[in-house]
Design a binder for these strands. Structure first.
Length: 421
RNA sequence: GUGCUUAUGGUGUAAUGGUUAGCACUACAGCUUGUGGAGCUGUCAGUUCCGGUUCAAAUCCGGAUAGGCACCCCA
């Protein structure tokens, strides 16, 4: 054994994950469903570097997030660089940079990894992947409905039914109207909104709110207004639009605010209805002013983001995770070293017919090679030795059923595809 | 950043402060020259790290590190 002091740790960095093949399989399963749904709604895929100028996040996000919750460093050319903590500013930047060339409305999506420097806990890591889907250039209830419909369709494509989750919807304009009518100054509105976002988790909510507003009368009046507001005509229009698309698990919940300053209209969050995991999984909303950050005129935009960690937790708790299957369909077992070249040639011929083939060079006994294929859950095995080389006929064994069939090389691929469905 | 809690072979676990730290799985080798999933045998491999208390520490104490949970904050 090597000297302990010189050995490098096999542990991954704090708050990030290794994706072993079984993990990556699930990751890919989730991503493929997201991609398929987005593209079925006419969304185009885009991407960008994880590195951004730090200033991109300074103006629109709070001080604490930039200073304490991002990975920011100075590069060798004295530039402040940040590992993207979210995708929306990058999306807005890309649109603003080419706004003359991009026909609006545009529908874009990406599945990107984002980073935040904080203490990891359940559902919150330092790196996670999230789907971001945004429609830019259209305002109104039908665009809002489409975004919610995509979130809904993704949940269904992953196996969830409407009983498994609910879509809680509100509208930032409800709050704005209340702030106006109560004469709450612009300066304390953002903080008040963030406070409302945490309302359900707080015990002394009313006291803190009165403190923030510096007026217990205003606090009481605001709470009273909120509690009496069950819906708005806009949200009811939205409900109708969703019901036309057979989406019936929307509920109006004026307590949904989504903490961020940039939302300007509809906001929503998707909740798990399982009593043991009754929490917000992901959400989104309308933000019509983000392009002004780049000196651009406002452009109406609505979007949402869905993270892989919460998606995986949801699938796990609802027993919806797929069971692992490798991409490899066939293992070619070499039973005599003299047949190795012949086995590799066979594998190459099968690959040309779109069969995925791994050749086993271990030199172990056939039984052990079969055992390994079975353990790796490879469905078929073909043993190749001098007999096969000389006759040109191969025995294909289905490891799940034990069934064997002997065929000439050119008929193997067809047999496999019909057996695999 | 704060608090609570946990840490034993690769994995999962066991061990009143007192034998050589036990068991299962995995891996590897063999019983077994071309058809497996079983069985048997054997091998590799562990008390996270640093310090303290004690005749004696996996076990008690302090610190570090890492994981989990909650707070803070929420993209």
């Amino acid at each position: 054994m090597a000297d302990k002091r010189t050995v490098v740790s096999t542990e991954h960095y704090k708050g990030v994950r290794d994706f072993y093949p079984e993990d990556q399989f699930i990751q890919r399963y989730i991503f493929e469903h997201m991609e398929r749904v987005c593209e079925s709604f006419g969304y185009e895929e885009y991407n960008a570097s994880i590195l951004e100028h730090a200033e991109l996040y300074r103006s629109k996000t709070s001080e604490e997030i930039v200073n304490e919750q991002t990975y920011t460093f100075t590069d060798r050319g004295d530039r402040e660089v940040t590992l993207r903590p979210e995708m929306t500013p990058t999306f807005a930047r890309m649109i603003a940079a080419r706004s003359r060339d991009i026909p609006l409305p545009a529908r874009w999506y990406t599945i990107a990894n984002v980073f935040r420097y904080e203490r990891p806990q359940r559902g919150r890591l330092r790196e996670h992947w999230q789907l971001n889907a945004d429609m830019i250039g259209v305002s109104g209830v039908h665009a809002d409905a489409e975004i919610i419909a995509m979130a809904h369709t993704i949940m269904q494509s992953l196996g969830a039914t409407e009983r498994d989750f609910e879509i809680r919807v509100s509208d930032r304009r409800i709050l704005d109207a209340m702030y106006d009518s109560l004469g709450i100054p612009a300066a304390s509105r953002a903080e008040t909104t963030r406070l409302l976002d945490r309302r359900e988790k707080m015990r002394d909510f009313e006291t803190v709110l009165a403190d923030t507003l510096k007026s217990s009368e205003q606090a009481t009046a605001l709470i009273d207004l909120l509690d009496r507001t069950t819906s708005t005509s806009y949200l009811e229009e939205l409900r109708v639009a969703l019901e036309h698309m057979n989406i019936t698990n929307m509920v109006v919940d004026t307590k949904i605010t989504r903490g961020f300053d940039y939302y300007t209209g509809m906001v929503f969050e998707v909740f798990d209805t399982d009593p043991s995991n009754r929490r917000s999984m992901f959400g989104g909303g309308r933000y019509d002013n983000l392009l002004t950050l780049f000196g651009h005129e406002p452009v109406p935009t609505v979007g949402f983001a869905m993270g892989d960690v919460t998606a995986r937790d949801f699938l796990e708790s609802h027993n919806l995770l797929p069971s692992y299957a490798p991409a490899t369909e066939v293992m070619v077992a070499i039973v005599e070293a003299s047949a190795t070249s012949h086995a590799m040639r066979l594998a190459q011929d099968l690959r040309r017919e779109d069969v995925t083939v791994a050749v086993n060079f271990s030199g172990k006994k056939v039984g052990d090679q079969i055992r390994q294929a079975d353990k790796m859950r490879i469905p078929f095995i073909i043993a190749v030795g001098s007999t096969e080389r000389d006759t040109g006929r191969y025995t294909v064994k289905n490891l799940a059923t034990g069934h064997e069939i002997t065929l000439p090389a050119e008929r193997i691929a067809d047999h496999l595809f019909s057996a695999l469905g």
